[in-house]
């Protein structure tokens, strides 16, 4: 029997999404209205047309696509590395009370620390290139994922951990076969937070730090258009940054989380089969 979902929820979320596009269009219209009525300096608020032209130009002729790809590659790479690192830390933390309390101290010290605050130290340790920016990204993702994953591992069903003992699974095998998949919903929430943090950290790092590699990413695009006073390009890059952040968060990660939760039967477990 298939797990069916109430069509009501689907209809709501559809309408909800529909509304968003309307709002977005409304915001753009409002932008243009305010600009025209107030006669504000176009260097402050360029015409919508200029921004969109710049966006199209950037995509087809400029370096926007390559910079976007570079940004995504770095952030996703950092996200993957941070996830693996968080998993290793969780396994280490499961080895005993000492390790666990030490790591929890480190994570509560590091979690609230913005990566940019570490910038002078990062330059000392990693220089200024890709490794430094990767460090900033990994710092941004590691702690939220670690904290989430660990609370996931702590809240595993006792029957699962007991079963691991009965089957005499080793530490790694228990982690890979039970703890990790068993705390997957927590892991995904961690990755969602990590994504939001790393995307922001990357853009900010590039704006303070300079381009990554020769090309630079979207943060560099923002910085460059700012210092060169290319306001339409600045807004078009901002638009790309916002839309990418939103798309990744709402379209990819949220759907992934929903799919897992649905499989686990967590929200609307309506598909109970009869004996």
């Amino acid at each position: 029997m298939k797990n069916s979902f109430s069509p009501d929820t689907e209809g709501n979320s559809y309408r909800h999404r529909h509304h968003r596009w309307l709002w977005l269009a409304g915001l753009l219209v409002l932008w243009e209205l305010i600009r025209r009525i107030s006669g504000v300096n176009p260097l402050l608020m360029p015409p919508l047309g200029d921004i969109l032209m710049e966006l199209v130009h950037g995509i087809f002729k400029g370096m926007l696509v390559r910079r976007w790809l570079l940004s995504m590659a770095l952030v996703c790479g950092g996200l993957a590395a941070g996830t693996v690192l968080a998993m290793i830390l969780v396994v280490i933390s499961s080895t005993g009370r000492g390790a666990s309390s030490f790591l929890s101290l480190i994570s509560s010290l590091m979690h609230p620390l913005p990566g940019l605050a570490l910038l002078p130290l990062v330059i000392l340790w990693f220089g200024t290139g890709t490794p430094a920016v990767l460090f900033i990204i990994i710092h941004a993702v590691l702690w939220p994922i670690f904290v989430n994953l660990e609370s996931g591992v702590r809240s595993l069903a006792p029957a699962w951990t007991g079963y691991a003992r009965i089957l005499k699974l080793g530490r790694w095998e228990t982690f890979i076969r039970i703890s990790l998949p068993g705390s997957f919903p927590h892991l995904i929430s961690g990755i969602r937070t990590g994504w939001a943090r790393s995307w922001r950290a990357f853009i900010a790092a590039e704006m303070v730090f300079g381009a990554v590699g020769i090309l630079g990413g979207l943060g560099w695009q923002l910085f460059e258009s700012r210092v060169m006073m290319d306001t339409p390009a600045l807004y078009s890059a901002l638009l790309v940054v916002m839309l990418t952040g939103m798309a990744m968060e709402e379209i990819i990660l949220a759907r992934w989380e929903n799919r897992v939760r649905r499989k686990w039967g967590e929200p609307g477990d309506t598909g109970m089969a009869a004996e």
Binding site: A157, P158, A159, W160, G162, Y163, I166, I178, P181, G182, F184, V260, K263, W264, G265
Partner: peptide, 15 residues
């Protein structure tokens, strides 16, 4: 020695 409980959450939901 296999142990079976009354617990509703003995199976792994991801499998």
């Amino acid at each position: 020695r296999q142990l079976i409980l009354q617990d509703d959450r003995q199976l792994f939901p991801w499998l």
